[in-house]
Design a protein around this nucleic acid. Structure first.
Lengths: 214, 214
DNA sequence: TGTACATCAGTGAACGCGCGTTCACTGATGTAC
DNA sequence: TGTACATCAGTGAACGCGCGTTCACTGATGTAC
């Protein structure tokens, strides 16, 4: 067995991308950054050098695809926002459209699960200081989440459920409550499990939607 | 005017404490650390070297009073917890004891104001990763806050108010909601003012305490 | 009253570390003629 | 078909910075005799 180089240093080696496909490294960087953020937590765990180490490249190589660290973080965030939106959307569609309350619960459940499964990403998304020039209106992803919940609550009202708050306020109540609960879990993760979080949020939803149908 | 040394370099000079009063520097360090945390924000703003700079001493001098950075942070935290408890207690006592709902609102108002006035401290308190051996039961300061609110809600119930949740759950709902609201404000401070936060929390309290007395 | 010594408050200089970023480079692959 | 050159993917080494921490020290004030 003279020539079996591929298991020699499995992690160290990295064959460079073929001509004209340099863009692929950009994806690799984002993927590794995301994985790193999942394993550790907090924005401070996301460093240029750490990502380079994870990908198996030189730190300098990152600068061919991202102007600076802020741009790398922005890239990760953009990916995360899409993931969260997809998770909530998918959860809603898994519930029959007539079950309007079920769709509210499903979406908030997906939200909490995302936060619990990806603490580093969630903290980055929520704590990220935006110094950028205010992104265009509905580009603010949390605004989108709240609007999504508002629509879900409006559908509840239209279906005859009595809300104890107007749909827009109800959406904020539930979203803010969920965020608060999840943030507390993040600061002391071992104390409780996901079910307790889901329980809290479902209680909150029940508080906002007067218990029985009209 | 030959001898006016005191305005020469007002910030640089610092006369050492007299014999036997070395403990006073400990207080100075804590005070400066707290001020630093008020001006900047987040635990990462609190550095040994930064505090030393603020006090006007050498970094090494801090180690005569604190074993390491963690102990300094612990000192600041302890002070903060006392401040928060005092603020909530004071706010409660400023309201007549018969006004049980008013006391609920006053205490949560004080909580929110503390969080808004001291973002750095609040973030430190909430996000501080405890690696220490689990402090003794009720030493966990947030547990104390929740318990305080639970008692306030129990007094509401005893006074004849109908609660939509048991007092312990109501306390958690309101506390978690307030934390969520405040945390969101921290991540985007200029968007809103204190009144909006207080408004949200009062709405939440009204949601939990069924609107009119029995 | 004088003097040797202990105790005190606080320091200067250095250590090793990891970070973000820059810059001139290397070597492989394509293209023009 | 061969060769000079351009373009590409990616690198090695260094920069300056701020951090937490250590260690031998300095100089003033107290105490024992």
């Amino acid at each position: 067995m003279p020539a079996m180089p591929e298991d020699a240093d499995l992690t160290l080696q990295r064959t460079r991308n073929p001509w004209g496909q340099g863009e692929r490294l950009r994806e690799e960087i984002l993927v590794s950054a995301a994985r790193l953020l999942s394993e550790l937590d907090g924005e401070e765990a996301l460093t240029i050098r750490g990502v380079a180490r994870a990908v198996g490249i030189a730190p300098a190589s990152i600068y061919q695809h991202f102007a600076d660290k802020a741009e790398l973080v922005r890239g990760v965030l953009q990916h995360d926002y899409r993931m969260l939106a997809a998770a909530m959307g998918g959860a809603a569609e898994a519930v029959p459209a007539e079950d309007v309350v079920g769709r509210v619960r499903a979406q908030m459940g997906a939200y909490c699960r995302f936060a619990v499964d990806n603490p580093g990403h969630y903290r980055l998304m929520m704590n990220h200081r935006r110094s950028q020039p205010e992104p265009a209106e509905g580009d603010r992803p949390l605004v989108l989440v709240v609007r999504r919940m508002q629509e879900a609550f409006e559908r509840c009202a239209a279906a005859g459920y009595r809300l104890r708050q107007p749909a827009d306020r109800a959406a904020i109540t539930v979203f803010v409550g969920a965020h608060g609960r999840v943030a507390l879990w993040h600061s002391d993760p071992d104390e409780t499990e996901v079910d307790r979080i889901l329980g809290f949020v479902n209680e909150l939803i029940s508080l906002v939607i007067a218990d029985s149908r009209n």
